[in-house]
Design a binder for these strands. Structure first.
Length: 796
DNA sequence: CACGCTCTGCCTGCG
DNA sequence: GCAGAGCGTG
């Protein structure tokens, strides 16, 4: 290489570095590295999505321009001079005028695949790509989607090779449960001995590991219980097959099996995908890893991004080993660590680093920030869960009143959804704007599931589960006996249950109900014919009218009004789909309904504080974060503490995730006693709080209004001056066992009547000496506190 | 069969 | 504490 050539290469790289100066050196390294496997260990708030998006944009624009050592023929001194002086130009100009000349085999957009876990992440990547790349680059052709949507897409094209007809149905967890119940019956096993939830978990984990029922049975050997589970798994899989249905785990597993066993399909995708990226790689399971390896097997340009410290889904099959040993699977992989955090203050980071350092199995890394130290972390000890909630309310009110923050700057993140209750009550009482994430999803409502089931049956007559769901919804007087007979005939004849109904007049057993069955089958067949002609929304109306479902709700009067509204909302979802989709089809819509949960109802623009579990907060950030319930026996959860070190490490990672959500300020709250699941617990402060260096904490004591009347054993770990010891968690201690209360015990939520104040609702009950202190919200006069003995409250 | 009562279990949860 | 399931009765 001549001196001129090496100057050319040096200036080329310098120009790229300059054009991408908005990225830090490690981020640039990741963006420019595209011709070998790449592991990006991206700490919390280190700009991982930016890197993922920028890298795809980069390889579409410039290919391997940065590291390519090819020098074009006849590089002149003038050119080199030009490049050198270009370094003084603004980044924008360099990008426009110089970078395109370095392009080295850029990659067409359709040959790029990006896989995520959630629709939200997939959408964010799509949107950011669309904002980064011009339309002419073919940005719309990039495959970006969730593991499940990508597999569904592959199976729609090639699933027939695995025995699935293209109109297959996707079963969700609820469908799964019902099918397992059915399988248990088939196997003549009792649900009490083998709980459905347990089997569901076992089957799901088996599929995560690509184990078929046969594999599982082989593993079971002489273990009776395993053999039983294996038989249920086998029966379950048979039921799915005969309904032409796949569950979520099947989508992945069957795609992997398809790619493994069918060379032509495998090569089709391997030749197509030159670049494969996987987000949140720490949450992948073995099947997903295998899928990733297969899809990227043609070019081996696989980039995985993740943070082993943020792996929090072990309980649903995630295998942290995937990210820990990626470099062993791909010895030529480049490893890039993104350790600069752009989110939090250094106090918050120091705390998070200190906590996570207690874990053993991890890639060593340490987040740092250029940001200020920031405020210390507040540790507040509250009397009980209500005081904890009030502390949150007070703090928010105070900060908002001072003009330090808006409501939307605050998030309350908790370990379990059950904690939301007391906090929600306090917020409602104080009339603070808030929203809660979690709870029943729109698509989980009965009426929506019913409507979808009708559509699914129309799309896939073989779907026995959906058939059974709607056959008597509305009531059609088809009894359990008839349905059993149909199911039996179907199995004997090798037909679907719907086919049996269509020909009900052929079977003696169905003599009495054949009229009803035939008319039902006719209705579905008519609707199926209509589905080929009508627009989706018109079809939906026909289904709701002809089935009598809408009428049923109308007849239901007031209580069903909300359901009718929900159906209308569902219809607007259909309309939206028809408008958005390139080629709207019934199957397409159903697939979207199955794979795309609710559109995020979390409206970030509204000025309201937000409540959610730590799990659902992953990937989000908030200026100020409350972490209530920092107690042993709650966080870490008692199950985790019992099960073993691996579970405990996962809890610690969860804590790490929680801490790193905060940008400016963290409030940790620990309650001395807590009413949870109908028991009052008195647990010491969470060990995770103890792991935070004292210097980072500001211990805030109870505003001394009620000096604790609780003394003795359970208060020890909490004594305000020294809480360094955490003893055994005293789960289940019921400290209110002694019924010190007067005659009529009222409890929060009870409606009561007062002689002067009128009707109201009990908000809280506190022991006060030998008496009880009630806090009551009256409809006319607002909140009043009163002693039970004098209040003379009448329970309504 | 529909309703209401009792019993039970209960962490986190993407698709 | 509460929801959902299962069971028994009118």
């Amino acid at each position: 290489m001549t001196h001129l050539d090496s100057l050319y290469l040096t200036y080329k790289q310098a120009l790229f570095d300059k054009a991408y100066e908005h990225l830090n050196p490690m981020q640039r390294e990741a963006v420019f590295s595209i011709d070998h496997p790449l592991l990006v260990l991206a700490g919390a708030g280190s700009g991982k999505t930016t890197v993922l998006v920028q890298r795809i944009a980069f390889l579409i624009h410039y290919g391997n321009a940065y590291f390519d050592e090819h020098v074009p023929a006849g590089v002149s001194e003038t050119l080199v001079e030009q490049l050198k002086s270009a370094l003084d130009l603004p980044a924008e100009t360099i990008r426009e005028r110089f970078l395109p000349m370095f392009s080295a085999d850029p990659c067409p957009a359709f040959r790029v695949l990006a896989i995520t876990f959630t629709n939200k992440a997939a959408n964010e990547i799509k949107n950011r790509l669309a904002a980064t790349l011009p339309e002419s680059s073919g940005v719309a052709d990039i495959w970006a989607g969730t593991f499940h949507s990508i597999c569904a897409r592959i199976l729609r094209s090639h699933g027939d090779l695995m025995g699935y007809a293209p109109g297959f149905t996707i079963y969700d967890t609820d469908d799964q449960k019902k099918t397992i119940a059915e399988a248990l019956k088939v196997c003549n096993l009792d649900e009490k001995l083998l709980p459905i939830k347990t089997i569901q978990g076992i089957i799901s984990r088996a599929k995560d590991h690509l184990m078929t029922p046969d594999d599982y049975l082989a593993e079971a050997k002489d273990n009776l219980r395993m053999k039983q589970v294996g038989r249920v798994y086998e029966a379950y899989q048979g039921l799915l097959r005969s309904s032409n249905a796949l569950d979520f785990d099947d989508l992945i597993m069957q795609t992997v099996l398809l790619l493994k066993t069918h060379k032509e399909v495998r090569e089709l995708y391997q030749n197509r995908f030159r670049y494969v990226s996987v987000d949140e790689f720490q949450e992948t399971n073995p099947a997903q890893l295998e899928l990733t390896v297969l899809l990227s097997g043609g070019y081996r340009n696989l980039m995985v991004v993740g943070d082993d410290d943020q792996s929090i889904y072990r309980f649903r099959g995630a295998t942290i080993e995937n990210i820990l040993s990626f470099d062993r699977l791909f010895p030529d992989a480049k490893v890039v660590k993104l350790e600069q955090n752009y989110r939090s203050t250094s106090v918050i980071l120091a705390a998070a680093n200190a906590v996570i350092a207690h874990n053993e199995g991890r890639h060593e890394k340490k987040l740092w920030t250029a940001a200020d130290e920031g405020e210390k972390i507040t540790l507040h000890i509250a009397e009980d869960q209500n005081a904890e909630a009030r502390y949150i309310v007070d703090t928010v009110q105070k900060e908002v009143a001072r003009g330090n923050a808006a409501y939307k700057d605050f998030a309350v993140l908790y370990r379990t959804n059950a904690q939301a209750n007391s906090i929600e009550k306090a917020l409602a009482r104080a009339a603070l704007p808030y929203r809660i994430l979690g709870g029943i999803r729109f698509s989980d409502r009965k009426e929506i599931r019913d409507a979808v089931a009708y559509l699914q049956l129309i799309a896939n007559h073989a779907d026995n589960l959906r058939l059974n769901r709607i056959i008597n919804e509305p009531k059609r007087k088809i009894g359990a006996k008839t349905l059993e007979a149909i199911a039996m005939i179907a199995v004997e004849q090798g037909l679907s249950q719907f086919e049996v109904m269509e020909t009900a007049d052929k079977y003696v057993a169905l003599e009495r109900t054949k009229e009803t069955l035939l008319s039902f089958a006719n209705m579905i067949n008519d609707l199926t014919a209509l589905s080929k002609k009508l627009s989706l929304d018109a079809l939906f109306d026909e289904v709701m009218d002809r089935s009598g479902y809408r009428q049923m709700l109308k007849d239901g009067g007031e209580p069903e009004a909300e359901r009718l509204d929900n159906l209308e909302e569902f219809k607007s979802n259909i309309l939206e789909y028809v408008k958005e989709a390139e080629e709207p089809t019934l199957t397409g819509f159903l697939e979207e309904t199955a794979l795309v949960a609710d559109v995020d109802r979390y409206d970030e623009s509204a000025d309201a504080l937000v409540l959610m579990t730590i799990h659902s907060a992953k990937g989000l950030e908030f200026p100020r974060v409350f972490l209530p319930g920092m107690e042993e026996g709650l966080f870490p959860s008692p199950q985790a503490a019992m099960e073993g070190p691996a579970e405990l490490e996962e809890e610690r990672r969860l804590c790490y995730v929680a801490l790193t959500r905060a940008k400016k300020k963290l409030y940790l709250i620990s309650a001395k006693t807590r009413l949870l699941y109908g028991r009052t617990l008195a647990n010491p402060i969470s060990r995770f709080v103890e792991e935070i260096p004292e210097g980072l904490l500001k211990k805030e004591l109870l505003p001394s209004q009620r000096t604790s009347s609780y003394t003795g054993a359970f208060a020890k770990g909490h004594s305000e001056t020294s809480f360094s010891s955490f003893g055994k968690a005293t789960v289940g201690t019921n400290i209110f066992e002694k019924k010190s209360a007067p005659k009529e015990q009222l409890s929060p939520g009870d409606r009561v009547l007062h002689a002067t104040f009128g009707e109201g609702q009990i908000l809280s009950v506190k022991p006060m000496g030998a008496d009880l202190l009630y806090e009551v919200l009256f409809e006319r006069v607002g909140i009043k506190k009163m002693m039970a003995t004098y209040a003379k409250l009448k329970k309504l």
